[in-house]
Design a protein around this nucleic acid. Sequence first.
DNA 1: TCACTATATTGATGTTTATCTATATAGTTA
DNA 2: TAACTATATAGATAAACATCAATATAGTGA
Lengths: 114, 114
Amino acid sequence: MTLTAPVASEATSCTPLDLSAALTRPQAEQLATLLKAIADPTRLQLVSFIQASNNAEACVCNLTEPLGLSQPTISHHLKVLTEAGVIIREKRGTWAWYSVNQERWQQLAPLLAS
Amino acid sequence: MTLTAPVASEATSCTPLDLSAALTRPQAEQLATLLKAIADPTRLQLVSFIQASNNAEACVCNLTEPLGLSQPTISHHLKVLTEAGVIIREKRGTWAWYSVNQERWQQLAPLLAS
DNA sequence: TCACTATATTGATGTTTATCTATATAGTTA
DNA sequence: TAACTATATAGATAAACATCAATATAGTGA
């Protein structure tokens, strides 16, 4: 004889939550994708460095040296940020100029204040 | 006319950026730690579920079923969120009640709207 | 005390990710 | 054309992480 499974209506057990106002899985996944893109110290510095540069744009070679990482690693991080829509890539000649998507970045401003 | 070089003043190498206004490494690491805590769809839903519950607090057993994950996994995620200061843990009897750190959560509001 | 319940911790496993070196691609200029 | 430069991609590796089953801890009540 096996033990009885927990009864759903048991008085002392947990009441189901009303989740009609909560984040759905797709919503949570989409938001997590954006947050993952910036949840890395190197990528946060990359965006900050681009923002702090002269015309609010920078190329890969500007960013490699101050971060002390290899060029492919910087390119990789910039790709992640670009695909998340946090920064924008514009090719001019052999250079790739990156600028900050201000609308997206402004959404993150409240978090940066802490 | 010839194609635009990067900037007339610099022919070959990149001009160093002025990073005096940019995020320092320790600042970036601290912020990344907070962002990592919420950059996960399950943890975003956990916070949202707690927020949506009756007194804006929930215990582990409330959260296990709607997420379809094991109890140890939920406890693990709640620990990550607690250590990041996103939620607050209060033990009452055998139950552990979790509530949202409203100040932190409000900083996310602009992102939730997008 | 003992049994039951709620939650936390441990240890293992498969997946993701940050990083490198090596190489490829593409634009510029001789 | 070839050489040079800036950037991207491929492949490998080690670390971090999400998850589970099993177990430990701690509170409650008979």
